[in-house]
Structures are given as structure tokens and as C-alpha cells.
Write a protein that binds this DNA or RNA. Structure first.
Lengths: 219, 219
DNA sequence: ATGTTCTATGAAACTTTGTTCACTGTCAAG
DNA sequence: CTTGACAGTGAACAAAGTTTCATAGAACAT
């Protein structure tokens, strides 16, 4: 894949963050304002570049209408997870690695190298892939064991803005972790609910992929 | 919450489906076309109604920009969000009606009006059979604590015939309990997974309401 | 030197889209 | 019978938003 420039990546990240926060895409003028461009055409050019490089799909003429192309972002290891549903049926889910943050208000496919998470997506070959609004995350590790979230549990994550005390799936150093969000004044911490782990985890920049709404464990 | 009319709900569902499929919101004219309205104002009115009823938030003047208010979407009707891959692979996210603590023989839907969690179920190839009527049950007490099912947890129950070893919701003396089903020869026992409880619970007459398929715990 | 690519400005053209206004019909409650 | 809420038509407007055109400096390889 052709490489994004720094500014292009910044714009793409802003767009994703905007969607994540507001649930709709920014307009070209929104981006222009954010980056202090004097002309809308500067943004336009970057969007064209992003589309040419295959990470973004524009819908010509339509306002605030984009898609991101998840598989273009990264394509590394694949993990196949079998999810036993409430039926006697099961879904095989394939994790799709992804380095970025959030797509389309909709989560994107995240896989962490170490601690915790791998995103589940349907088995589907080919290009067209749709993201659900909420998604399931298989928990790896024991960072939230004191919150009664154990290794192997599945957590339902929903996009949205997190409040103090929420358990969030956050992207730290390119790695997705499940931690409790602590806001103290203007400072933000992430807290692992495990006595063996450092109590507070100060973070400067953080991308919250969603809020953990519930835990699911097949019996 | 004020109740949505049928058409309003249909429009809201279409909008959600559109976001789910395209990752951006439909324009008013998109909705107009979908529902064959002759005037955009028909849509406009419905959107205003949806906003007044608190389920949708509009961003005035902005194109294709909305938010949905999740708490407000708490009607008992089953919401099915379906998303599919390029092949015939597909996944449904289905909301499950939340039945409070069980009273008589049937789940009592009065306690909670909310939709609890979305479960994932595959669409079986060919026969698109409808999943059995599953419901959620809040666990009271600690009779299954050793199976890691705690007080306050919610269990997804599905009707069906139980096998040996299944955790079932059974009606004993007019009271619903969650226990593991033990078959020894022709005898049937119910076993509480708690060391403090009597090991085996012989039953003569037994009404099994369903089999516990998974545990869900809201965070 | 010279062309090419990337990035950006500035202005304008043009399309999309939300919004408003005037008007009609239906249906149920007072 | 009337009032009011609801649902819709049809036309028009203005804001929001995308796209195009002309231009230009910087970086970079030919």
C-alpha cells in the first residue's frame, strides 16, 4: 500500500475521531477549520490522496459521506476464533488486525499483539466488509479480573463517549487494552482492575474505541 | 418515553440500517426516496417527531448528521441488525427481550422494559430458521456461584430439551431456580453449584423453562 | 535548468440538502 | 361542529458542502 503522508494520516485520524465522537462524518469545511487551512481545496486534495491510496472511500457529491477501507490499513496475522452462540450453533470469527483507531463510528478491527484483545469479524473473504455498531471483544489476560472479567470472556463494546468510571477499550501504544477510565480534574488515567497491576496508568493521548457494556460468557 | 408511530420507527430503523451498511447517514431525500414520499417535508416532519420523542438527535443545518440516543431505544420489539459479507456469510445482532425475575410459568416482562444485550447468531445457510424465543433472566441468589454465575448476573435462557449437565431454569414449587440438571438412570436431580447447598436436589415433578446458554453481565 | 509531484491559496461554480411556507386531508377528542 | 394533532403534497429558498479552475512555491529527481 502506498504510504500516507503525515498530514494525510492526521486528517484521517481526525475524521475517525470525529465519527467516533459525533457519530457522523466531518464536512470538508470542518476539517479545514480543524487544520487551519485557508482553502477547502487543501482538504479536498488530501481526501483525494487518501482515496487514491485506498484507505478512504468517498461518495462523490454526497455530504459527510465516507467509508474507510479496513483491509487496506493493515494485513498481518489472523486469528480464528470460534464463538459459541446461544443456539447450538457457532460462528467462526476472524480477527482482523488493524493499527489505527476507529472507523465509521463503528469500531474497527483491532488486534493487539500482547495483552488483550482481538476483534471479531465474520468470516468473509473479499473486500466488502461491514462493521456493526457494537462489537464483541474477546478478553485476553487478567487485567480486569477484579471487575469479574476473566480471560476468555467476551465483552460487548459500543462506541461512544466514555464517562468517568466506565470500562473502556482503549488504544495505547497501538495496543488495545480494557481498563477503567478515571478522570481526576483534567487528568485522565486508566486503571487495571487487578491488584498485581499498577494502580493508575497515566495517559496523555488516548483513543477510546468504545465502552464495555456487558460481559458475555457462553456456558 | 413517548411512543414512536410505526412509520417513525420504520424510518429510524432505515436510518440505522443505512448507517450500518454505508457507514454514513442518509440524507432526507434518501429517506424520501426509500419511503416513496412525494415531499421531503414528510420526512422532515418525522425526523422532528423522532427528535421530540428523544430517540434521535439532529444537528440543525448539518447534512447527514445525526445521533441516536441509545437509552431511548428501549422498546421491547426485537431489533435485528443484520450485516453480511460478500459471500453468503452473515451475522445478526439481535436484541433479546429482558424478562425480569420469573414469576409464574412465563417470563414476566413487566420488571424491565429494556433491551438487555445483543447476541450474535449466525444465519444458517439455506434454511433461515428463526431462532427460538430466547429471553433473559436475572439471577438472584448464589446457588450457582461455583459455576461463576453470581447474584445480579443475567442468564440467557432458551427453550428446549435439556441434557444431562445442562444448566437449566426450572420451576420448583412455583419458584424458578437455576440449577444444573443431573440424570442418573431414570432419576433426575437438580444440583446447585454451591458448596453450602445440598448437593443433589431430587425432583419428582419438574418443569424446565429453558436451558441457560450464556451469562451476561451489564457493566 | 527543467519538468513533476505535492501542497497549498483564493475564488467561484455548482450540487446537495436542510428548512420554511402555504395548503389539503384524515381522524379522534371535546 | 370544531379544534387540534398527525401525515402528507408541492414549491421554493438559503445554507451547507463539494468540486473545479487558475495559480504558485517547495522539494526532488532527471
Amino acid at each position: 500500500m502506498e504510504q500516507m503522508t503525515k498530514k494525510q494520516k492526521a486528517i484521517l485520524d481526525y475524521m475517525k475521531a470525529h465519527v467516533s465522537e459525533h457519530s457522523y462524518w466531518p464536512s470538508i469545511r470542518d476539517i479545514q477549520a480543524k487544520f487551519r487551512f485557508a482553502s477547502t481545496n487543501a482538504v479536498f486534495g488530501h481526501l483525494q490522496a487518501l482515496e487514491r491510496k485506498g484507505v478512504l472511500q468517498r461518495i462523490p457529491g454526497a455530504a459527510r459521506a465516507y467509508k474507510i477501507v479496513p483491509e487496506a490499513v493493515s494485513d498481518l496475522s489472523e486469528t480464528v476464533i470460534r464463538y459459541e452462540g446461544p443456539d447450538d450453533s457457532a460462528i467462526e470469527l476472524r480477527s482482523i488486525p488493524f493499527a489505527g483507531s476507529i472507523a465509521a463510528g463503528l469500531p474497527d478491527y483491532t488486534e493487539s499483539s500482547g495483552v488483550l484483545a482481538s476483534m471479531q469479524a465474520p468470516i468473509s473473504e473479499g473486500s466488502r466488509r461491514r462493521a456493526p455498531q457494537s462489537f464483541a471483544l474477546r478478553v485476553r489476560g487478567d487485567s480486569m479480573i477484579d471487575a469479574n472479567i476473566n480471560d476468555g470472556d467476551t465483552v460487548i463494546i459500543e462506541p461512544g463517549t466514555a464517562k468517568h468510571g466506565d470500562i473502556v477499550a482503549a488504544l495505547i501504544d497501538g495496543e488495545t487494552t480494557l481498563k477503567r477510565l478515571i478522570k481526576q480534574g483534567s487528568k485522565i488515567y486508566l486503571k487495571a482492575e487487578n491488584q498485581n497491576y499498577p494502580e493508575l496508568f497515566p495517559v496523555s493521548e488516548l483513543v477510546i474505541q468504545g465502552i464495555a457494556k456487558s460481559v458475555v460468557r457462553p456456558l
